[in-house]
Structure formats: structure tokens, C-alpha cells
Design a protein around this nucleic acid. Structure first.
Length: 266
DNA sequence: ATGTCTCAGGGACTGAGA
């Protein structure tokens, strides 16, 4: 099973490009972020014609996530699990998480809040969002929704390690590379999740996002912030993991490149 | 610090978010 994650930065703008990409790579499951489209306008028919069932939740202008699958999508769930004994915080209202089970694998498409700045109030919300994501995944596993394993995919807006940023010294303590973000990501991964890309590649300089400005892509000034996190059973079955830089080099690209992982399922 | 892109409102350009 080929699984992919891609922050498309507007599904409507990128639809033709996405469908060509689906034809070329033939993934079984695709997690999308920043679809920026309300549910009434989601291009379900076009994607169904391309061979995919769809699950999605969106809003006007911002955010929005989806899962496309050539196989049956079961137990679709939108949003985060509420904290115990407390009302769901306001950030739960944003469409940033959707989950479904495909061939027994619980797949999440997550768009982790950017945080805006390490001293901005939204930074704490980013960390809390990750805590709530961890709770959501743990709850789903307990509920038996992930018999064959877990794949938590998406735009984490966090570069895990120094080798995932083009200038680690300049990035030290900055947004996307802050110790608090690393701690929150580590907490999530303590569920037994591993970074699929790092199973197969150890070198630095491989990124998934490059700023549109300042010729960042040309100069490879990027960050690896789009991740496929796999539970142990799936990590053992992960044959390849790649970042499709070519998609970022096309005309009118998203600022993110797609990330792919190939799993050998029974 | 920001040279870009997307979207909305409103009907050209500006501001927000990333």
C-alpha cells in the first residue's frame, strides 16, 4: 500500500496538478492539508473519476484536510478528541484533522497549527493541539480502529532534528525548531511511532517545504516538516520512503512537496 | 528583516496567513 501526504496549499488551485500526480504515482492513500475549500465545493467527482474515494472537512480560506483512497475508507472521524473532564477548546473547531481506516490501517491527515511565533499566544495552542492529537490516536487504538497499525501523516510544522533544517544554528529556538515543539512531537511519537523517511535516509538536506520567497527552493533552503509517522508493525513493513521534489519544481507549485511511503501489507 | 502565493471582499487593491 502506497501512502502519501501533501500540503497542497489550496486544492482548487492544485487540482489538475494533483490528478496528474495521482496518475503518475498511483498512491493508494493520500492525505491532503490546506485544502482551503468548503465541503460543498470539494471536488469529489473529479477525484472519484481519478479512482479515489474521499473523506474531507474544510472551511473558507484557511486549513482544511482530506483523505483520498482507492480502497474503502472506514470509520471516518473528523477532529480531535476532547480533553477529559473539560469542554473542547476553541482550536478544536478548526478543520485540521481527519482520520479513516483503510485495509485495517488507521490513517490520519493532520495539519498542525503553525503557531505564528514562539512568543505568540498561538504557540501554546500548537503544543496543546499536539497533546490532543496524541490523545485522539491513543483513543482510536483503544477503540480497536487500528487493527493493522497507525500512520499519522501530515504537515507538522515542526522539523524534528538539525539535519531537517538548512541552517540549524539560525533556527535554534525558532518556530518550527523549538525545544517545546520537539518535546511535543516526542510525546506523540512515544505512542510507538517512527518517522518513515528516516527509516530509509540518514543524510541532511532533504526537505519537504521551501518558502516561496527569496529563491528558497533553488537554494534548497528548506525544512522537513511533512512527516509520515508509522507504528512499529508498519515500520517493519515500510519498503521505501521518498520526498517528491519534482512536484515542488513544477510551475505554480505548492510550497510543500509530497512525501510517500510504501508498505507491504498482507 | 521577507523579495511569494492564496484567498476574501468587492469590483482595484489591500490585508491576513503561511
Amino acid at each position: 500500500m502506497k501512502i502519501a501526504t501533501w500540503n497542497v496549499n489550496s486544492l482548487r488551485v492544485r487540482l489538475t496538478q494533483l490528478i496528474a500526480w495521482l496518475d503518475r504515482h498511483e498512491p493508494d492513500v493520500v492525505c491532503l492539508q490546506e485544502t482551503k475549500v468548503v465541503d460543498e465545493d470539494f471536488p469529489s467527482e473529479e477525484l472519484q473519476r481519478a479512482g479515489y474515494g474521499v473523506a474531507f472537512c474544510g472551511q473558507k480560506t484557511y486549513n482544511g484536510v482530506a483523505i483520498l483512497s482507492s480502497r474503502l475508507l472506514k470509520d471516518v472521524q473528523i477532529g480531535l478528541a476532547a480533553p477529559p473532564d473539560a469542554p473542547a477548546p476553541k482550536y478544536h473547531e478548526e478543520p485540521r484533522l481527519i482520520a479513516a481506516t483503510v485495509r485495517g490501517v488507521r490513517v490520519y491527515s493532520a495539519y498542525v497549527p503553525n503557531g505564528k511565533g514562539v512568543n505568540h499566544p498561538d504557540f501554546a495552542k500548537k503544543l496543546a493541539w499536539l497533546t490532543d492529537l496524541r490523545r485522539t490516536v491513543a483513543r482510536d487504538v483503544e477503540a480497536g480502529l487500528a487493527p493493522k497499525g497507525i500512520a499519522v501523516c501530515g504537515d507538522y510544522n515542526i522539523a524534528p532534528e538539525a539535519r531537517d533544517v538548512h541552517d540549524p544554528e539560525a533556527m535554534q529556538g525558532q518556530l518550527h525548531f523549538h525545544p517545546d515543539e520537539h518535546a511535543a512531537l516526542k510525546q506523540l511519537m512515544s505512542l510507538g511511532l517512527v518517522d518513515a523517511y528516516r527509516l530509509h535516509h540518514q543524510a541532511g538536506g532533504d526537505y519537504s517545504w521551501w518558502d516561496y520567497r527569496m529563491g528558497a527552493f533553488r537554494r534548497n533552503h528548506g525544512l522537513r516538516i511533512d512527516l509520515i509517522l508509522l507504528s512499529e508493525s508498519l515500520a517493519e513493513r515500510c519498503l521505501t520512503a521518498t520526498i517528491d521534489r519534482d512536484a515542488r519544481a513544477l510551475p505554480q507549485p505548492s510550497d510543500h512537496a509530497p512525501v510517500l511511503a510504501e508498505l507491504r501489507l498482507d
